[in-house]
């Protein structure tokens, strides 16, 4: 609900690669968060819902399967660095895509309710953008 929400997916976030569509995302939280905080990545490309388990994510130069992030508590996604979602959809340089993303970040130091569950901070994006070449 603030100015950083609009920067989660930027104008130049899409890149077409031989393997699919790369979507560079930036955090809407003010501080670096550990990788398990990428708790919810609900992505829809051109109306097609993407199974998070089919995603790979590159952070800090390391490429992980989405499911691996939950165990990477010793690595952090820095405030000004992108995390790149590798999405298995067909694309080509110059092609337009509608990208809808609900990114839910688990905030590990804000515990809510009697069960002390980390706050889930959501950010929604709905943008139609053109993929650049790799």
């Amino acid at each position: 609900m603030g100015p950083l929400d609009d920067q989660v997916v930027r104008e130049d976030s899409l890149t077409a690669t031989p393997d699919g569509l790369d979507v560079a995302i930036y955090t809407h939280w003010y501080r670096a968060l550990p990788l398990p905080s990428l708790a919810k990545v609900e992505l829809t490309v051109d109306g097609e819902r993407i199974d998070p388990q089919s995603l790979a994510v590159t952070v800090n130069g390391h490429r992980y399967a989405y499911a691996e992030l939950a165990a990477k508590g010793d690595e952090y996604w820095f405030t000004t660095d992108p995390a790149v979602l590798h999405v298995p959809v067909e694309t080509a340089p110059g092609r337009e895509h509608r990208v809808q993303l609900l990114l839910g970040l688990s905030i590990p130091y804000i515990l809510t309710g009697p069960d002390r569950v980390p706050l889930l901070a959501p950010s929604s994006t709905d943008k139609t953008l053109t993929a650049a070449g790799a």
């Binding site: 939950a70 508590g73 569950v117």
Partner: peptide, 12 residues
């Protein structure tokens, strides 16, 4: 600094 008690899913 932060004390990230909820660092890992499902446990503190």
């Amino acid at each position: 600094i932060n004390n990230d008690l909820g660092l890992y899913p499902g446990r503190l």
